[in-house]
Amino acid sequence: MASVALARLGEERRNWRRDHPPGFFARPEKTASGETNLFRWRCSIPGARGTRWEGAFVPLTMEFPREYPAKPMKCKFPAGFYHPNVYPSGTVCLSILNEDEGWRPSVTVKQVALGIQELLDNPNEKSPAQSDAYVTYTTDRAKYERRVREEVAKYPPPE
């Protein structure tokens, strides 16, 4: 299966280079020996304009299994990232990343990145992953907004 995954990831990389959303970043990591590791990508998800997340450029790691694209990648923000649909470990809870829900082998890196950007400002109340952020989001929106502004400040634009 790894050869299928490598072929698909090579295609994803070429497609991303040709056509990726403005402000987004996604690139396979380099190994200690300088080789490209297509199974682990470093990304940055910008907060969408006109949203409470505008101005943030949040680092994200995409880890692809050897069974990709039959199985979805895992996407992780930094541990402790404050959001109702992000586990304390940083793992993003999104239906298109769930093998038993919305994942389809045709889902692309670009679609996942855009889905995560959309999730930032539009949490899914039916799929909480972090109790503190979820409770605050559902009970005290002003406090949630203040906390999001603190989070945005942690992830300024790259220089």
Rank of each mutant, 00 (worst) to 15 (best):
S3W: 01
S3L: 06
V4G: 02
A5C: 09
A5Y: 02
L6T: 13
L9Y: 04
E12C: 02
R13N: 13
N15Y: 02
N15E: 14
W16Q: 04
W16K: 01
R17C: 05
R18H: 14
P21G: 14
F25M: 07
R27V: 02
R27L: 01
P28F: 05
T31S: 10
T31H: 05
A32N: 08
S33M: 09
S33W: 10
E35N: 08
T36D: 07
T36G: 03
W41C: 00
W41D: 02
W41E: 03
R42W: 04
R42L: 09
S44N: 11
S44Q: 14
G47I: 15
A48V: 14
R49N: 08
R49W: 09
R49G: 11
R49Y: 11
G50Y: 12
G50D: 07
E54I: 00
F57P: 04
F57V: 10
P59C: 10
L60I: 07
T61F: 06
T61D: 14
M62T: 10
E63Q: 15
E63V: 15
R66V: 15
E67R: 12
Y68T: 00
P69R: 02
A70G: 04
K71A: 06
K71Q: 07
P72A: 06
M73K: 06
K74G: 10
K74S: 14
C75S: 09
C75N: 10
F77P: 04
P78H: 08
G80Q: 09
G80H: 13
G80C: 08
Y82C: 12
N85T: 06
N85W: 12
V86F: 03
V86S: 10
P88M: 01
G90K: 13
G90D: 13
G90I: 15
T91L: 11
C93V: 04
L94E: 12
L94K: 14
S95G: 00
I96Y: 01
I96S: 03
L97Q: 06
E99V: 01
E101I: 01
E101M: 00
E101N: 00
R104E: 03
S106N: 00
V109N: 02
V109E: 04
K110P: 01
Q111H: 04
V112S: 09
A113L: 15
L114K: 12
L114R: 09
L114Q: 11
L114I: 07
Q117H: 02
E118R: 13
L120P: 08
D121V: 05
N122I: 00
N122P: 02
S127T: 15
S127H: 07
A129R: 04
Q130N: 14
D132I: 11
A133V: 02
V135Y: 09
Y137S: 11
Y137W: 15
T138G: 08
D140L: 08
D140S: 14
R141D: 10
A142E: 14
Y144N: 07
Y144S: 08
Y144I: 05
E145H: 14
R146Q: 10
V148L: 03
E150L: 15
V152T: 04
A153K: 10
K154Y: 00
P156I: 00
P157Y: 03
P158I: 09
